[in-house]
Amino acid sequence: MRPHRITVLLLSLLPAAPVSANLDVHPMRVHVDAGRTTSIRVQAQTPRTQYVKATVKRVVSPATDVEHEVDAPPGDAAAIAVTPGMFALAGGGSRLVRVIALTPVEQETAFRVYFEGVRGVDPDAPDDTAETASATIGVSLVWGVLVNVLPAEGRVEMQLADGSLHNRGTLRLGIDRIEHCAGTTCTTHDIERSVYPGDALALPFQPAAGARLRVHYRLSRDGYREHQQTLLP
């Protein structure tokens, strides 16, 4: 499973000054069922009021070597909405941000919601950037939270073909490990990869004829609960 992406923007550099992050976001991965909502908590790490902006990106080919992001469509065409999309965060305070699944999806789809501190929208608000910079190295962290939107009727289906494990279902498979069992002897291969619907995982071994493969995996909606399925090559 790939680590969540965190983009660090260095706002100022002052020798021998301490470093402080302006935000903390939790959790870094959530799921949301069709027509429902989930929440993300944004926590201030500075004593001053700041403004936070949320940006939504759709993840294309997630958990593969060609993974990339594109802008999510706005308005009624969007699969998710984040509310509020921009808000003031009091020093030391926190805010719950809702993620709403708007448009039904046919298969589990990945998005990333970025949270970053931005310049205040209030023209009368005091600008204490210089004061802040004199005391710290101002590091503005852009936090990327992975959001998995689930279909109304999720289905798990996997198939072995051409030395790969193919996800033929509609839900992401969080593969933990695969046991290769020939007779009474089983060899465990740790995998730790997500396989999204329509994608395939190249096996790190060649299945023997007549062997059994026990696939241990997790689903987004079940948290750390483990499932398993036995396949024949």
Rank of each mutant, 00 (worst) to 15 (best):
S164V: 06
V52R: 05
V97T: 10
G174M: 10
L14S: 09
K57H: 13
R218I: 04
V97Q: 13
V149H: 06
E131I: 04
R193G: 01
R221T: 10
R58H: 13
Y114A: 14
V66N: 03
I191V: 15
R98N: 05
I100N: 07
G183S: 10
A200M: 00
S94P: 00
S194P: 00
G169H: 09
P104D: 09
P84Q: 09
P84H: 04
E116S: 09
R177Y: 15
G120T: 13
L173S: 08
A34T: 15
A90V: 08
S140Q: 15
R36N: 06
R5A: 13
T170S: 15
I191E: 04
S164L: 02
L165G: 05
T184W: 01
T170F: 05
R58W: 04
S164I: 01
H26P: 02
A63H: 06
V99E: 06
A161S: 12
L141Q: 12
Q43K: 12
R212W: 03
T188K: 08
V121H: 09
L14F: 08
L231T: 03
K53A: 10
L150H: 05
D190C: 01
W143F: 12
G169A: 11
C181G: 05
R212E: 14
L10H: 07
K53T: 11
A16P: 00
S140P: 00
I137E: 13
L160W: 03
V195G: 01
Q229P: 02
E131T: 08
Q159G: 02
R119F: 06
R41V: 12
V121F: 09
D190S: 08
V121S: 08
L10W: 11
A78T: 13
Y196R: 00
D162E: 14
Y114T: 10
A63S: 12
L13P: 02
D127E: 05
C186H: 08
V42Q: 03
V195D: 00
H180C: 09
L146I: 09
R225V: 06
P84I: 07
M158F: 04
D65N: 04
G144E: 04
T188W: 10
T7V: 15
R168C: 08
R193F: 02
V118L: 00
A81T: 13
H166L: 10
V56R: 15
Q229F: 03
K57M: 12
S194Q: 02
V195C: 00
R155D: 15
R225K: 11
S164N: 06
V32P: 02
V195R: 01
R48D: 11
T7A: 14
T184V: 08
A17P: 03
M1I: 03
T55R: 13
T170I: 07
R221G: 05
L201Y: 11
L231V: 07
Q107M: 12
P207V: 07
Q50P: 01
G138Q: 14
R225F: 05
T132W: 12
I178A: 03
L231F: 08
P204L: 04
V70S: 07
Y114D: 03
T187P: 02
L232V: 13
S164P: 00
Y224K: 11
E226N: 02
G223F: 13
R41T: 15
A79E: 15
P104C: 09
G117T: 14
S194T: 00
Q45P: 01
Q50M: 14
T230E: 14
G144I: 04
D71A: 15
Y114C: 00
